[in-house]
């Protein structure tokens, strides 16, 4: 009797895993603040559209590190490190917040967030964030990076596998 129940549980776990994986492969969420969707699987590719944190995409195919995705009728490529299978729910509506503890769901802004950072700053007046703020603004345009690579006879494209 006990063996039967254990077999049932283990079988159930296997089935649950299969169902979970099958159901979660087609729709993915953007897990970074901003992600560029490109015409080709390369950082050299022309930008088709830009997506924001929590936006959903339908995965059409994968090419190693790059995924071909569809969103709002536009198709393009994005690096897989910008994507998650979790359903990222933006902070709106109590219902979303209630269910967000599920492993398949992540509530944007939950946990260590700007409120916690503000509290930390309040407790640690000696820690100065001004240079981190400046540092974050340093973003070299991709056109400059391309030029830099070309001038230095380096590879170009990035995100290769």
């Amino acid at each position: 009797m006990f063996t039967k129940k254990l077999a049932c549980i283990i079988g159930g776990l296997g089935l649950a895993a299969t169902v979970t994986l099958a159901a979660s492969t087609s729709i993915m969420s953007i897990q970074v603040r901003k992600a560029e969707i490109r015409e080709t699987p390369s950082y050299l590719g022309k930008i088709v559209t830009t997506m924001a944190y929590g936006d959903k995409v339908t995965v059409q195919s994968g090419n190693g590190a790059w995924m071909q995705v569809l969103s709002a009728g536009q198709s393009g490529w994005v690096h897989s490190s910008a994507l998650t299978k979790k359903n990222i729910v933006m902070k709106s509506g109590a219902g979303a917040q209630t269910t967000a503890s599920s492993g398949e769901m992540a509530l944007a802004g939950k946990g260590f967030n700007s409120d916690v950072e503000a509290q930390f700053k309040n407790n640690h007046k000696d820690v100065d964030f001004s240079w981190v703020d400046k540092m974050e603004k340093i973003k070299i345009p991709i056109s400059d990076i391309r030029e830099f690579a070309k001038d230095g006879k380096l590879a170009a494209g990035g995100g290769v596998k």
């Binding site: 897990q31 970074v32 603040r33 992600a35 950082y43 944190y53 590190a65 690096h79 490190s81 910008a82 973003k139 070299i140 990076i145 830099f148 690579a149 380096l154 590879a155 494209g157 990035g158 995100g159 290769v160």
Partner: peptide, 13 residues
């Protein structure tokens, strides 16, 4: 930033 494009994780938040 050029090198980061060639890492296994070019995209961070």
């Amino acid at each position: 930033q050029y090198l980061s494009l060639y890492s296994d994780r070019p995209e961070t938040f």
